[in-house]
Structures are given as C-alpha cells and as structure tokens.
Write a protein that binds this DNA or RNA. Sequence first.
RNA 1: GACCCCAUCGUCUAGAGGCCUAGGACCUCAGGUUUUCAUCCUGGUAACACGGGUUCGAAUCCCGUUGGGGUCGCCA
Length: 437
Amino acid sequence: MTVRTRFAPSPTGQVHIGNIRAAIYNWLFARHTGGKFLLRIEDTDRARSTPAALQTVLDALAWLDLQPDEPPLYQSTRTAAHLAAAEELLRRGCAYRTDKGGTGQGECVLFRMPGTDLSFHDEIKGDLVKQAADLPDFVIVRSDSTPVFHLANVVDDIAMQVTHVIRGDDHVANTFRHIALFRALGAPVPKYAHLPMIVNAQGKPYSKRDGAAYVGDFRAQGYLPAALLNYLALLGWSPGDDREVLSRAELIRLFTLARVQSSPAQMDPVKLQWMNGEYMRALPPAARAAGCRDVLQARGLWNDALPAEYLGRVLDVLQERVKLFTDIATAAYFFTEDYPYDEAVVQKRLRAPGALERLAAARSAYAALTDFSARSTEQALRDLAAARGASFGDWVHPVRVAVSGTAIGPSLFHLLEVLGRHRVLQRLDKTLARFTA
RNA sequence: GACCCCAUCGUCUAGAGGCCUAGGACCUCAGGUUUUCAUCCUGGUAACACGGGUUCGAAUCCCGUUGGGGUCGCCA
C-alpha cells in the first residue's frame, strides 16, 4: 500500500510556522516513502474562511515548493458525504440523536464511543492509552445539520485514503475519537504521528508576539524558501549525524518519523539567519540580484538610470554581507545620492584632527586619476599616506564616511570602483562642503 | 482540577547500558587575518532538572518529585 499523507489547513488567516512545518514533514515523509502528498482545505468554518486566506495557504506552499500530488479537496464541498456517514452511523446504532444538555437548540447527533479503553501507537510518541471513562460521546452533527470537524476530518481522510496522519500534538486527544470513528465506519485506521509544538523562550506556543511567525513574514523579510525549509525541517528532527545544511534531496532521503523529536523545540531566529546566509552564498548571482531588486523596488531605492549589470557588481562587492535580501537596504548609498551620514561616525572619522585635510588631499589625488580601478585608488591613497604621514587607516576612513555615510561596508576601493569616478568626486565635494566650517 | 505529553550546553541537537573525562551546529568570548564591517582561521566557556532504585556499570531502563506544555466546544 502506498503512503498517502495530507496537509489539512483551515484557511482562516496567515500560515503559522508550526503548521507549515507539519506540511513539510508530511511532504518529506511522502517523498521519502515514494508516496503521495495531498492537500485538504478545511474551509467549513464559513465565518472565518476567506478566499484571501485560502490564497495565502496556496502561496505559502508554492513558495516553499511543497506542491500536492493531487488537486486539493475542499471540505466545504463534502457536506453531503459527511452527513451520509452520520446517517450510516445512526443506522448502525453507533450514533444517536439528542438535545445535548437540554439547551433547546434542537437535536444534534452524538457519536457513541465504544465504551472500552482505546489505544494507538504514535510513530513519534509511542503507545498512548485512554481509559473508557475519559472518552465521552461527542457531537458529530450539529442541531443545524452541519457536520462537526471530527466527522468531516475522518470521513475525508477515508475518502482520500490517507495512510499517515502527521499533525500537531494538540490533536492527540482527538485521535482517540477519530480512531473510534474510523472503526465504526468500517475503515482502516491510519498511522499517526504527532509533532511537538514550536515554542518561544518561555516555553509557550510560538506566536506572532514572539517575532516572525508566519510564512509570509519570512518571505517579506527576505528569507530564501530553501533556507526556511531546511531550518524548519531541523527544528524537531535531525538526520542522526552532524549535518545541518541539507539539500531537498538529502532531506527526503534521510527523513524518518522515528527521528522526529518528542519534545518541543524553540524557534531560534538567529540560527535561521545563519542558515539563510549559507543558502545565500550558494545562490546563483542572477537569483541573488533578482531578490535584492525586489526589495529595492519595494523601498523606492531602485534607479532605472543605473546600468542593468550595476546591481550585480554591487552584490559582488558586498559578498556575504547580504544574508537576507532585505540586507541590501543597508547599502542604500549604492543607489541614491541622498544617503544618511551616521553622526557618531562623522564625529569620529571626519571631525578627527587632520581628517578633512586628508579628505581634501584624497579628492585632489582622485581627480587626477584617469584609471579609477580599485587598484589605482588604493595606490593613490597609499602614496599619500607614505608621503604625508598618518596611518593608512586614517586616510581610508574619512573617504569611506564621505562616500557612504557609514563606517561599515565592503572593501573601500572596490566600493569606489563600483560607484565610479564621477559619483565619488561628487560625494567627496559634497561632504567637504558640508563638514568644512 | 481531570486526563495526556515532555525534560542533554543559552538555543537546535548527537547519544537507543560500557565507545561519554557527553560530540556537532547556532550564539557568545579570546586571539589571528584585514582600511571598517562581514567572511575566513585558531582556541575557550557552556548541559545529562532532582531523588530513589535496577545493574559489575546509567545521560541512556523503572518509580517518584519538581518544572514546563497540551486537551478538556453543537471551533478547526
């Protein structure tokens, strides 16, 4: 029997990392076993399910390239099947109608639990048991004749022939009900694997209050989908050796439910960032440029007047300083003349004794250069340092602040080369005029 | 409260009785390289929650304690 797993989100908002991790594990397990990964949209909560939220789910899956192997099943189209199953249970005496609690809401349908202890083997948590006394009957069809989650979930899993239910462990208690339902419906019970949650530093469920919590947040912050996938795969699972940066193919090959952790895992944004840097440096230059261009355009820093290959040259110079696409915004001075000066740095580097004189001398030397390569701008400054005294650094820093407004950044001379003679002289003049009393 | 789950460095984890004076990664710290930052290189700090058993031997098995978490809807 081939494996069939499913991701069954309800489209009621953003896609939480805990949910997407469940999707990732379902996908990895299906791929590892040569099975199918399915998608079921649990959109039966009419009040909360929206088309926009549905699109968000689809976008998240597409972004991470977790494409389902069959068209998604929309639970809202399955009401007749759910109700038919309830009728069948009624007919067999496995369910009964009653006005539960005498609330006057009318009669609803309750499922009759078998009255025996129930147990199942969880692929992650091991054997789980529940006493009959802790398993009361429950509602499967509301008094307004709409099916309840438990019924819909099981009926649809049967229809989709799901063999492995991999989901968050907040569903452990539900599982006993679901198993009883499968049996009453005469269907084979799937295997279960319950994933521990992703928690914050306080051990509570990780939420948006703790930082980026939705797939869309990470995308907006400039993360690479492959990096997020890799990080999340490792949050609660490990291949058993020391490897951490793993390709999709390796992830698929190595993934097993037996190696999924049974204890909660804490989200570590810093490590995610490190991992993103690992993926970023392996990214083809064109892809890196495309991602950065999107960020620049979104922030109004994109300048059509600059040559097409300009961004590529900037990124060559920036190198691993760009760990996230959004990091390109910290080097805005490459794209605008209206870059800010860091006051503390100005104080330290331009107001230092002799700094402006050295800057003026550098300006003159650069104006005389015909070859404006990194090699020649460096040589010019080294010559000045040798002839006029002061350390090389004392000549470098003022120039850096003048052309970029900041103390941090790539190799100065490569920066100058990318900027070009014209803009460099212009910036030097502007800075000199501005800070010379 | 009842029921259930969980417990190795700050974090993610390796560890399925002797290979553990507990390994790796992120973070952090100290050096080195360097015009700054980043990268890179070298080295360091840092953990088996506690208490009982079982055993020749326990991070690994059992029990208890403590601490966390989850579930107790005619939500999903």
